[in-house]
Design a protein around this nucleic acid. Sequence first.
RNA 1: CGGGGCGUAGUAUAGUGGUAGUAUAUGUGCUUUGGGAGCACAAGGUUCGAGUUCGAUUCUCGGCGCCCCGACCA
Length: 415
Amino acid sequence: MRQSHLFTKTRREAPKNEEAKNAQLLIRGGFINKEMAGVYSFLPLGLKVIKNIKKIVAEEMEKLGSQEIIMSTLQNKETWEKTDRWDDGKVDIWFKSAFKNGSEVGFGWSHEEPIVEMMKSHVSSYHDLPVTVHQFQNKLRNEVRAKSGIMRCREFVMKDMYCFALTEEENLTFYNRVIEAYLNVFRRVGLGDITFVTSASGGVFTDAFSHEFQTVCATGEDNTYIHKDGKLALNEEIFNDKTLKKLGAKKSDFEIKKTTEVGNIFNFGTQKSEQLGLYVSDNNGKKKPVFLSSYGIGVTRLMGTIVEVLSDDKGIIWPRGVSPFEIHLLSLTDGSKKFADDIYESLVSRGIEVLYDDRDLRAGEKFTDSDLIGIPTRIIVGEKTIKSGMLEIKDRLTDKIKELTLKDLINELKN
RNA sequence: CGGGGCGUAGUAUAGUGGUAGUAUAUGUGCUUUGGGAGCACAAGGUUCGAGUUCGAUUCUCGGCGCCCCGACCA
């Protein structure tokens, strides 16, 4: 994309009503627009990041055999009454409205109940199981206090996945496979080294249990105890002598870190299915309640976390997999335009995503914008480069400059 | 939902009970062009309502909006 065509502008200063680093940088770079507290729109650059994260998540979910769907945002009151979660006293984050005829309707903050209800039309025999579905959906939650930029919003993008299984064992096997898939996701978005699975509540052998995925982040809301071996992590609420004894671990081997929750997974057992009436016939013709587990990744929060963790005083440093573009091509002078145009065309024709700064601006301004936007690889084209015939490649993270031919660069990007 | 803070131009900030200033961004022109260049001109503003006052952007009360801390976060 030619930057002269990009309608968004970068800003020199952060808005005063945003204190969170993620919101400051994303707004300054023109990735997002604040509509109101806890509600943001995604502009071309931000949308590309969202799409990249979704793509990674979708690939990992599809590897698990999950099928993508999209549920409605408007939700039926009766469905939620069956599990006693319609009442504002029980769930305090409902957005609700009413139809013209006066009957109530809810805006989806979660989709567990509706999806179980929906599955009743499609699942009736053990032959139909297991089945797994996922969606990318805008969740609406009437948070009392939205905060921290895009980390805790009233409207946000979430990937949620639901597995319906015949037996506890089948359910548990899938649950464990998802843990691996989630770790793949967090590795691919650049947070692998600092993201940990934590057991949140209860033991693994109780009927309902859950795990969280916590990313180490100075501005995180949670406290997580991380073992020095880097593999074991415990949520603050279960970090006690009993847990430690069970695990055979010493208190002194753990270090407490601020973390932010980027994913969580729940096993419901058969509870929801029983409440909502999702049963299948087994091979003896006997009715059995279906096992349900649910799996969430906050896509927009993940984007915010990446910015919180991977940025410096100059701007964002996107990991390769989620960066809005692979290459930021800067043409510095009028004389370099023709040369840069050619590079742009050759890269684009090979399917490489390039943001091409062809604007009629001074070099310094282009460098500053480029640092802020944070595309990991930059090609700088100026008078110097044209003479040598080599490309000047600068790495956003390390600041190192190297010279490559166009061909070598393309090969490098393909790997 | 409790506590604290803040609302002045697109953005960021001064200031004042009596004609509202600067920077930056924007428009025009010229000079510039490897880390946010320079000059000139132009356009652009006091969150809303009530009260006090001869007069309120400023003081008082209320609404609305926003930020932070806490509570909350299947």
